[in-house]
Write a protein that binds this DNA or RNA. Structure first.
Lengths: 212, 212
DNA sequence: CGCGAGGCTTGACAGTTGTCAAGGCAAAGT
DNA sequence: ACTTTGCCTTGACAACTGTCAAGCCTCGCG
């Protein structure tokens, strides 16, 4: 009896926790969409609420303050960003295939998720001014570096050449490449994605001691 | 007599124009300092005025609105950023000297002007959200690209090897490199500047068809 | 000397922002 | 049927923002 009661209470509690987490995610999605559209500087809590189906008061029911909301958003942003290239690494059978697939994936996400990416750069920049964001931004940056490094090392395996750079350097170069393509793409350069797709293989090659 | 009068009036007018321009520059310097410290998102006109020796009303005497002030700042930012490497290009006598001088200059300005640089990245990011900044950001970006390209072509001359990349690609890579070093430096990584100085030569070499 | 204009301060305005308390409403529990 | 609980809305608050008009001070000119 008491046992049954407790079980019920547990189940209810768990359902509530799930629902709570679900709502948080839902609101975070609305927040991400708004942030990606307006940028960090111009996004208010009311803007975010208006982009969801709730009123502005809800945000303080699910998040303690604006920082917690945005931090939560950043973490969710990570999930969307990081997993993009891993299946390419897994499925590519040859070095050339990996190279081309990687370039195509970068150009693809540039075209498809440009607002998301510009938001990521915005938030990473904010972390230079706002200490509260640093830990999360650093964590995401690290997992992006890891992701790039998985591509590089897999390419090294397939082409049987050891890479000539550190993970950090490889990431810095691809990130610079991508960011410039993004700026071009967002500001209306129609060839930005194509140029990126053409440049990624060149940069990837340059990471290895060329011996022709 | 009328001639003398007119000459006087002209001189007075010119002096006023000079004084006007001087004050604008002075206020822009205060604004730049504030922006570099707080970031675009958190800088108000009152913050800027408090960082100068005037009151907040002055800003609307010298600038029509906030956008004009910040745009003016961005242009002034350019002047400070762009001229940094040109004397290295002019004075270097050998390829090795240029390579080392360039790396040292990058590491030096990273250490000395980190807040300025993070502001530049902030503003360039804003230009992805705020169309009003795009033209100026693009212009600065272009002159930075040109500056990098001067280094690269000079290096090509001195080492008698043609570069294997486009100006845009060269700029993207050095910019990525610098930006990651900046983030590291600002967020407390003590080796960021040293790593940058070590990596710049590698990247510079990688821009040329290596033939060992 | 008076006076007009330029340069700057002051104070106020309307709008926006993050925050939070009071309350409504429906579903679950008893 | 009554209460409790969780979820959400509403409305208000104080602080802050960009903007601008009114006025003060000072300097140079007639």
């Amino acid at each position: 009896m008491t046992e049954v009661k407790e079980q019920n209470r547990d189940r209810v509690a768990r359902r509530q926790v799930d629902k709570f987490a679900e709502r948080r995610a839902q609101l975070a999605t609305a927040a991400l969409q708004t942030l990606a559209e307006l940028g960090y500087a111009r996004t208010s809590l009311r803007d975010i609420a208006q982009n969801s189906e709730f009123s502005h008061g809800v945000l303080h029911y699910y998040f303690s303050d604006k920082f917690e909301l945005i931090t939560f958003c950043v973490r969710q942003c990570k999930t969307e960003c990081v997993t993009h290239y891993d299946h390419i690494v897994a499925t590519a059978g040859t070095a050339a295939e990996l190279k081309q697939g990687f370039a195509a994936a970068m150009a693809g996400t540039l075209r498809a998720d440009a607002p998301m990416h510009r938001l990521w750069y915005d938030l990473r920049n904010q972390s230079q001014f706002e200490e509260a964001f640093r830990a999360d931004a650093r964590e995401i940056d690290q997992s992006l570096e890891d992701m790039i490094w998985r591509v590089v090392t897999r390419f090294a395996e397939l082409s049987e050449t050891p890479p000539a750079v550190t993970p950090a350097l490889a990431y810095a170069m691809f990130d610079g490449l991508f960011q410039h393509a993004l700026i071009g793409h967002v500001t209306g350069d129609p060839t930005a994605a194509r140029d990126l797709e053409a440049n990624v293989p060149r940069v990837l090659d340059s990471l290895f001691p060329s011996s022709p």
